[in-house]
Write a protein that binds this DNA or RNA. Structure first.
Lengths: 375, 375
DNA sequence: CTGAAAGCGCTTACAG
DNA sequence: CTGAAAGCGCTTACAG
């Protein structure tokens, strides 16, 4: 019995001298078991190195101690950090994590979620490719938490940052430092998050009485490979931008090399999303700290509460995670239209001021509300 | 039947007018089914939107279409990229990915692998915390592929880079540029990969007739938070290093800010592992391109072959993935003991030469053998 | 080429 | 507090 094969519950029950059902009760921490009986069963379990079979439990019980996570791409630094904090919390709670990348393909996203449902995941955390991507799917009572982007699905919960407000803040920051011609680089505005960031940008410009030049609005950069072309074109304009905003980390990772390549490191720049080395570049990069660890942690926490039925189902407002701007240098550069001043402006790394991440200007949650200032 | 509930195989069989077993045969692509019968079953399946139950299949068949992946931490940029390529390949092959971080805790690592085995994963890919971490585990015939670090487990396969040779290359590169006092920063040498890199460093130093100063060898940096202290101490030495090597990406992400902070950006530096922005820093960072995407892809490919029985089991030499040095600036700086020359040395970002990743000096696989030059 | 039976290892009602 | 029966949805031998 204990020789080569894995022990099953029947073996445990046999050794403990109880019925299989009683052994099952101990396994499931059912309180209606006599202390002595429980002790005998537990002893048998450890003696046989018994491990329950997840497939059998899941088949019979109709639920599995696993959670499915769907993201754009796990290779993205922002996403990796997000998933890391989700995994830490869920693992601590005893859940196994199933991970899949949708590559922002809605059919793939839906197929993945369907599979997670089929696998009886206790819940799913989804970075949706669009806010209605899962709306019409029949998933029973599967708890769904959307992360980083809002999802509309009934009975779901979204955990986001205030994209509108943060984009407004980033734009305002550049305006405060004297910029008037501010370019923005993003992926498609069909992504709700991206659209909100554009709206925040527009609001700040309008509030400052600045015209929005369509030539400076580039929402045609699906990923970093498109950035160099866009940046080059921007600086080829008769009246080029003196500052740029990038609306996600991937694009930021394209903007920095592009500015270096075209010799425009004196351009004002605020990046959405912090990234490794941002503080060590020349100039150091001012970012909106989008805190993936915090967003992921809150999403995991929220899902666990849903799974445990501790959260009222029904309509729920998005949870808005606080975030803020970390000034590091690039966002505080004054306007400078003349590229000839490059060498003198971009100082050596050694003299650059270093801003630890923790010193970021934190916005309080109170300062940003769910739909803050959007209407 | 098709109203609210999910269809099961019995429903499909009923609608098609065949036995449940025949429906099962169609599902499993058993060729011994008459074409007409198969067509009827397939039609019923799509009509009912039938989806097989993974738990039931797994329970009865004894295997699941999933693969477990265990890594140090999914939040690490190197790891994220590695996992991303693994996931892409496995998803294309129809496998679901279970992902867990061991945080280099051997007990956690073993518990995770045990759970994957219990879940009947078709195979596991493991970044082992030590080469013998899984040696004594009874995992039946579970295919195991180790990635990035060698594992000793019988019947397993390791996919690695030639750490010894690459570290020798990095050190030699600095020596070629005139450095004699070369510091090395790493995590613990109990990690086999780390130890091999130290050995490669020593070999290059010895081959060049240079003394190895124990004060310049810092294997006490578990992660990036320890780097600033170590770097500060190194430069406080009476005879400080003129160049540094960091043995992994996490540490590199600490070294760059540290060098900037202490005003030593003129220090020669070669980083193990490429990272975002390496090319845009001042100076741009010379790296050993450790290609996580390629390593992950080969690991996934190898595992799939094992799963499909296309690979002879038994003793197998590690697969050594080619990698090379990408010169970008920091590794080509001449020795410079005097910090006062900093400002003139570290040029502006605008004049920095930019080396696209693809232009890296690729070493051919032939040039690096499994245990290349180690004996 | 097709089917009736048994069972994978558990948990769910239902009794006592 | 404990147990005997049934069954979750499939696939595995075993027949025909």
């Amino acid at each position: 019995m204990s020789a080569g094969k894995e022990a099953i519950l029947r073996d445990v029950a046999g050794l403990a001298g109880v019925s299989i059902k009683t052994a099952s009760r101990v396994l499931n921490e059912d309180p209606r078991v006599a202390p002595l009986t429980r002790a005998k069963v537990l002893s048998a379990m450890s003696q046989l190195e018994y491990r329950p079979d997840p497939a059998a439990r899941s088949l019979r019980a109709g639920r599995d101690r696993s959670v499915g996570v769907v993201v754009d791409s796990i290779g993205d630094v922002f996403v990796a950090s997000l998933v890391s904090s989700i995994e830490t919390l869920l693992a601590d709670a005893g859940y196994q994590v199933l991970m899949a990348s949708s590559h922002r393909d809605i059919d793939r996203e839906r197929a993945i979620v369907q599979d997670f449902h089929q696998r009886r995941c206790a819940g799913v955390i989804v970075m949706p490719s669009s806010r209605d991507s899962l709306n019409d799917m029949r998933l029973g009572d599967l708890p769904v938490v959307f992360v980083d982007r809002k999802g509309d699905r009934a009975d779901s919960q979204s955990v986001v940052v205030d994209d509108f407000e943060l984009a407004r803040l980033a734009t305002q920051h550049l305006i405060d430092h004297g910029h008037q011609r501010i370019g923005i680089l993003s992926d498609s505005r069909t992504v709700s998050t991206t659209d909100s960031r554009h709206l925040g940008y527009c609001r700040a410009m309008q509030d400052a009485g600045l015209a929005i030049d369509p030539a400076l609005v580039r929402d045609d950069c699906p990923d970093e490979r498109f950035v160099l072309g866009a940046v080059t074109e921007l600086f080829a304009l008769e009246s080029p931008p003196t500052a740029l905003i990038s609306t996600n980390t991937r694009l930021s990772l394209g903007v920095v090399p592009a500015l270096h390549l075209v010799g425009r490191t004196h351009t004002g720049f605020v990046a959405f999303g912090d990234f490794p080395m941002a503080a060590s570049l020349t100039p150091a990069v001012t970012v909106i700290d989008h805190s993936p660890r915090r967003i992921g942690g809150i999403a995991a926490h929220t899902l666990l509460k849903r799974i445990n039925g501790e959260l009222a189902t029904g309509v729920s407002e998005p949870i808005v995670v606080s975030a803020g701007l970390i000034p590091r240098g690039s966002g505080e550069l004054p306007p400078c239209a003349d590229a000839s001043t490059v060498a003198s402006r971009s100082g050596s790394g050694a003299t650059q001021v270093f801003w630890p991440i923790d010193k970021g200007v934190e916005m309080t949650s109170a300062a940003i509300t769910a739909e803050g200032g959007r209407r």
